[in-house]
């Protein structure tokens, strides 16, 4: 494992911890998109189908368990916890899951490396992860006051994706690998979706202003 990959995973872990911290400690999920969280739960559930049958490393299994556990517990908090769920902006979080899930699934059926159940589900999870942040970005744009933790959560998620791209560049030059078009292109699309957010994030940080995305 190279340094970019490790830094990427740690950033991803940090993003999840920031979100859980907000929800668990402040008992608020204001500004957090349940749609995005449900999509992530689906992403991990379909990607880690082989978690108990294909062992890679303790690190790998542990991280998979953390991402599965955290994504499902965030969804549970937002839907079921009697205090947390009251702070959910249901009226603002209107993005339709199916508009993302269905095209990703159809695309995975057509463009995959091998037409097997596990491989199609794995490819589907890559496509879906690429666009899963969209409901969250739409919600951020509608929310006038983005609190610090929500802003940091999205920033860390975007950072994780950017570090994964560096990781692939590194792997391309150091390992004997195929050109992994599916992983690369979906990863690139995913990272580009954050470009706009990053711009405004750095802008507000530089000017010491509250983060606000233009309508």
């Amino acid at each position: 494992m190279n340094i970019f990959r490790l830094a990427g995973d740690m950033t991803h872990l940090a993003s999840v911890l920031v979100l859980l911290l907000k929800i668990h400690t402040i008992k608020s999920c204001a500004g957090v998109s349940l749609k995005t969280q449900e999509l992530y739960a689906l992403v991990f559930a379909t990607r880690y189908l082989d978690i108990f049958t294909h062992f890679i490393s303790i690190y790998n299994t542990l991280m998979k368990l953390i991402f599965l556990g955290s994504s499902f517990s965030i969804v549970w908090y937002m839907r079921r916890h009697k205090i947390v769920r009251r702070s959910y902006d249901k009226e603002q979080d209107t993005f339709r899951h199916l508009f993302l899930i269905l095209p990703c699934f159809l695309l995975a059926l057509v463009i995959n490396e091998r037409f097997t159940f596990k491989e199609v589900m794995w490819t589907f999870s890559l496509y879906l992860e690429a666009v899963a942040i969209l409901p969250q970005l739409v919600l951020l744009q509608r929310t006038r006051n983005i609190d610090n933790l929500t802003g940091q959560y999205v920033f860390l998620l975007g950072g994780y994706r950017a570090l994964y791209i560096l990781n692939w560049i590194y792997r391309y030059f150091t390992e004997q690998h195929f050109v992994h078009w599916i992983t690369w292109i979906s990863g690139l699309v995913q990272t580009l979706l954050y470009a706009d957010f990053f711009y405004y994030y750095f802008h507000s940080w530089k000017n010491n202003e509250k983060l606000q995305l233009p309508a």
Binding site: N60, R114, Q176, F178, H180
Partner: peptide, 10 residues
């Protein structure tokens, strides 16, 4: 070689 990409990633 495993044809499927980067299965060791998260």
């Amino acid at each position: 070689t495993e044809p499927s990409a980067f299965k060791d990633e998260l």
